[in-house]
């Protein structure tokens, strides 16, 4: 029983981080119809900036217990980098999708060199804070409290995002723009502003994800590319553009991976992509995606 709980907790922790990045990807595609390959770079940017922010906060004498909110604030702050990037992407919204892929892939590669220039080639870790919250006992399993905080934060962000999109006026305008941009503009919606807002929020989801994961791991130049691959698996399973799909897809990928590692380690990625293939065959639009003609 404890082994099962351990596997589920491990898988859920991974899914929590994966959800944040995939949600950013989904939001941007859902509204802007833009496949943003640079989402992995935002994740890495959040991780690097998180290390810098916590280092600075500790230097300024902030108690280590406050590093969790510092990380979230750091992720939100650096997520504002989405604004100028969206200005550049604006030039290719109406062009063929291949331009979008090329440009966002270009950003992915350029960010790697930016990270190398600012933070160096060596993977960076945050030594002192991961264990500051101690450990908790969940159904007989010892688990770092920090992992539970990340899972909780991810759930809170999912709920907040759902509330924003479903219940607020701006959320309704975002959904209307996603449904029919021309109609929304005809009704007086400033689509450019909505796109800037959506892209920045999508970027922030990635940067917060990166900032939250780094205390338990490390920030490295490769992390952007690795996560992009898994995020796309989430998107294919959940359905492109669907927030519910991001939640379910991330959980499937996270838990599937954890179960495979436990039962048959060689099948770690194969198991995930078997689900991807299955979904593509049986339900090409994904579990929660809308089929297009």
């Amino acid at each position: 029983m404890t082994e099962l709980v351990d596997v589920i907790l491990g898988g859920t922790f991974h899914a929590a981080v994966l959800f944040l990045v995939a949600a950013g990807l989904q939001l941007v595609f859902g509204v802007q119809k833009l496949v943003n390959l640079a989402c992995g770079s935002f994740y890495a940017l959040g991780a690097y900036f998180g290390i810098t922010a916590v280092g600075l906060a500790l230097k300024l004498g902030l108690p280590p217990l406050l590093f969790f909110p510092v990380l979230i604030l750091a992720g939100l702050a650096i997520g504002l980098v989405g604004l100028p990037i969206e200005r550049v992407l604006r030039t290719i919204y109406r062009r063929d999708e291949s331009y979008q892929l090329l440009l966002t892939f270009g950003f992915l590669l350029m960010f790697q060199d930016v990270f190398r220039y600012i933070w160096g080639a060596t993977p960076r870790t945050m030594d002192n804070v991961y264990l500051v919250y101690g450990t908790a006992n969940v159904l007989g399993v010892r688990v770092p409290t920090y992992n539970l905080l990340v899972i909780a934060a991810s759930i809170a962000i999912a709920v907040g995002l759902g509330y924003f999109l479903e219940r607020t006026k701006t959320g309704r305008i975002v959904r209307a723009t996603a449904e029919n941009r021309d109609m929304a503009e005809g009704l007086g919606v400033n689509a450019s502003k909505i796109f800037a807002l959506v892209f920045t929020v999508g970027c922030m989801l990635g940067t917060v994800g990166g900032a939250l994961v780094v205390p338990s791991g490390a920030a490295s130049l490769d992390m952007a590319v690795e996560l992009v691959v898994e995020s796309f698996a989430v998107v294919v399973i959940g359905g492109l553009g669907s927030m519910r799909g991001a939640i379910v897809g991330a959980l499937i990928v996270g838990l599937m991976r954890a179960a495979s590692i436990s039962l048959m380690p060689e099948m770690e990625m194969l198991s995930v992509y078997l689900v991807v293939v299955l979904v593509l065959i049986v339900r090409p639009a994904g579990l929660f995606g809308k089929a297009t003609a």
């Binding site: 596997v7 907790l9 491990g10 922790f13 991974h14 994961v213 338990s216 791991g217 490295s220 590692i261």
Partner: peptide
């Protein structure tokens, strides 16, 4: 057998603990 550069090893650790 984690791939080189895997930064989330929580599931591998759970399997080892088990």
């Amino acid at each position: 057998w984690p791939k080189v550069g895997t930064m989330d090893l929580t599931s591998h650790i759970a399997a080892l603990k088990a």
